[in-house]
């Protein structure tokens, strides 16, 4: 767990460890929801979709618990330096994880709808996207737990791969829609799922930046290479 070594006041260390543990637990849950949502889509498993949707509620309550602990520690401990950074980072990371779980839950809901229609080849592209996002999420949680600033930088750099995959998938979905207009409903839902996964990558990037700040006290520079996106809009 990050930065929880040997405080003179032992209960302070205990509280810091507790917050880290809650964030790690929340991350693990978000990861499971994402995995379940995609598996539910691929295996056309309605029960698994429902399970993923339900699990999001636990993520929300962990988020509330972390916020409560953070406010409490700020008021009662008046943390400084690395402690202050790790407490603030925990709050921000929890918010990102809450968003990630929400995006994954949204995927699980759409899987329920998509699975009313006949199976489509396009679901395979979603698996490719979600593999990258899940890998980013796992790595950034590892970086958090191991206080690994370098690992966090690597996660952030992967976001570009995900953006490229998403742009490709956007075009792929358009092709399915043009081929057969009966595909439009399912392909649109798939496109929304893809967009959700792309957003999960962005949130992993935010988490990575928070891990880096927590560890080093420095902000990662915001300049990252950005390609042309699916709408043909060049990012600034």
């Amino acid at each position: 767990m990050p930065n929880s070594d040997a405080h003179i006041v032992r209960s302070y260390s205990g509280e810091l460890q507790n917050i880290s543990a809650l964030v790690a637990k929340m991350g693990g849950l978000a990861e499971t929801i994402l995995t379940d949502a995609i598996t539910a889509l691929v295996k056309r498993d309605a029960d698994l979709s429902t399970q993923a949707i339900q699990a999001d509620k636990r993520v929300d309550s962990l988020d509330a618990e972390i916020e409560h602990q953070v406010v409490r520690m700020l008021a009662l401990r008046q943390p400084m330096a690395v402690d202050l950074r790790s407490i603030i980072s925990a709050l921000k990371i929890a918010q990102s994880l809450e968003r990630i779980a929400d995006h994954a839950k949204n995927g699980a809901k759409r899987a329920l709808v998509i699975n009313q229609s006949p199976p489509m080849d396009a679901t395979r592209g979603i698996v490719r996207l979600s593999d990258v996002a899940r890998e980013m999420l796992r790595s950034v949680l590892d970086a958090y737990v191991n206080s690994d600033a370098e690992g966090a930088v690597k996660v952030r750099d992967r976001d570009e791969d995900l953006d490229v995959l998403y742009d490709g998938y956007f075009r792929e979905c358009l092709t399915y829609m043009m081929e057969d207009n009966r595909n439009i409903t399912a392909a649109t839902h798939l496109l929304f799922i893809a967009k959700n996964i792309e957003r999960i990558g962005d949130h992993c990037t935010n988490i990575a930046e928070n891990v880096y700040y927590m560890q080093t006290g420095e902000r990662l520079s915001t300049a990252r290479p950005k390609g042309e996106d699916a709408m043909g809009l060049k990012a600034e």
Binding site: D5, A6, H7, I8, V9, Y12, P79, M80, A81, V82, D83
Partner: peptide, 11 residues
């Protein structure tokens, strides 16, 4: 040493 002192880890 500064970090240790201000965060209360000072031994």
């Amino acid at each position: 040493r500064t970090q240790g002192y201000i965060t209360g880890r000072y031994g």
